[in-house]
Computed example of a mutant assay.
Amino acid sequence: MKQTTITSGYPIVPRTEVDFDLDGDIPRHWFGGDPFKTRFFDAMSTLFPEGEKFFISCVRDYRDQIRDPELQQQVKDFMRQEAQHGRIHKQFNDRLQAQGIRVDRIEAKTRSLLERIRKLMPASFTLAQTAAAEHMTSIMAHSFFERQEVFADADPRIRAMYIWHGVEEIEHKAVAYDVLKNVAKAGYFLRVGVMVYTSVMFPLHVFLILRRMLKADGFSFGQRLGLWARGLRWLYGWNGLFRPLMGHYFAYYRPGFHPWQDGEMLTYQRWASAYAQNGGDAVAAGNAAHAGAA
C-alpha cells in the first residue's frame, strides 16, 4: 500500500543559530516572581533533553521502512529540530543546576526510565508515545501563544525560548503521527490507549519534579501547600491554563483524526515574519508574536 501524508502550509525549518541570552540576568522565579508558575515550566524543561532523544530514536526505528520521499525529508528535519530543542533546553537547565536543582539526577532518572521503556515495549508503542507527546506539546503552542495574558508576566527571554520551541512543534506536529499511521500501521486502540497513558504519566513526572524544585527553593511545607493550591487553580481552574486546550486534546480520540485538521495559527505567522525581518533574532520574534496575540 502506498504511504501517504497530509502536509501543511508550514515547512519544517531546523534553526541552528537561535540564541536566547540564557547566561544573562534571568531572575530565579522568572514568571512574574511566581514560584509555582516558574517551576512548572522549569520542570518541563528538565525532561526535554532526554525526551527529545527518546522521540528521535522512536521515529528512527521506522526510518528505513519509509517509502514516501516527502515523509523521509520530514523525518530528517524533525530529528534536526528535536536535537536542537534538546541542546537549548540543556543550556537552560544548566541555570537550574547552578540554582541547586539536581538536574543531573533528574536527567539520569529520566534517561533510565525511557531506556527501560524502549527495552520492554514494542517499537510501535514507543512511537505511539512520541505521537501522543507531540500532540500534547503542539496543542500547548496553539493555545498558550494565542493568548497574550498567559505569558504576559514572563521574562522575555524565557518566553521567547518557549515560543520558538512551540513554533517548531507546530511545524513538525504530524511527522511522528504519519509514521505511526502510515508506516508502523498502528491501529486506533493503540493510538488512543497510549495517549491515555501519556496523559497521566507526563504531568505526573512534571509534578514530582516541581515538588522537588519548590523544596530546593526553601519553601516550608505550609508555603508549598499554598503554592500548590493556587498553582493547580491556575492550571486546571475554570479560567485556567489548560481549559482552552480540551477541544484540541480530545480531537486526538476521533477515529479520523489528523494533526493538521487543527488548521492555521496566527502566532506562527507573526513569529516567522518577525524572525525573518530581525535577522534570526528569536527574542525579537518572540516579543513580536506575544505583542500580536489576542
Rank of each mutant, 00 (worst) to 15 (best):
I66L: 04
R67L: 04
R67M: 04
R67W: 00
R67T: 07
P69E: 12
P69T: 15
E70G: 15
L71A: 07
L71K: 09
Q72T: 12
Q73N: 07
Q73A: 08
Q73L: 08
Q73S: 12
Q74N: 05
Q74E: 13
Q74S: 08
V75G: 03
V75F: 03
V75P: 04
V75A: 09
V75N: 03
K76L: 03
K76E: 10
D77T: 00
D77Y: 05
D77G: 00
F78D: 00
F78L: 02
M79D: 05
M79V: 02
M79Q: 10
M79S: 15
M79H: 06
R80D: 04
Q81G: 12
Q81V: 11
Q81F: 10
Q81E: 06
Q81K: 11
E82A: 11
E82I: 12
E82Y: 03
E82G: 11
E82C: 10
A83H: 08
A83Q: 09
Q84N: 10
H85R: 09
H85D: 12
H85T: 07
G86N: 11
G86Q: 12
G86C: 14
G86T: 13
R87S: 08
R87T: 13
R87L: 06
I88K: 02
I88L: 12
I88M: 09
H89G: 04
H89I: 03
K90M: 10
K90I: 05
Q91M: 13
Q91I: 14
Q91D: 13
Q91P: 04
F92C: 03
F92N: 01
F92L: 14
N93R: 10
N93Y: 06
N93G: 08
N93H: 05
N93V: 04
D94S: 15
D94R: 15
D94G: 14
D94V: 12
D94L: 15
R95V: 08
R95Y: 07
Q97F: 10
Q97D: 11
A98Y: 00
A98E: 08
Q99Y: 14
Q99H: 15
Q99F: 13
G100H: 07
G100I: 09
G100M: 06
G100C: 10
G100S: 05
I101Y: 15
I101K: 10
I101M: 13
I101S: 13
R102F: 05
V103W: 09
V103C: 11
V103H: 06
V103Q: 07
D104Q: 02
R105D: 09
I106G: 01
I106A: 04
I106C: 03
E107W: 02
E107C: 03
A108T: 12
A108E: 14
A108C: 06
K109R: 15
T110A: 01
T110N: 00
T110F: 00
T110V: 00
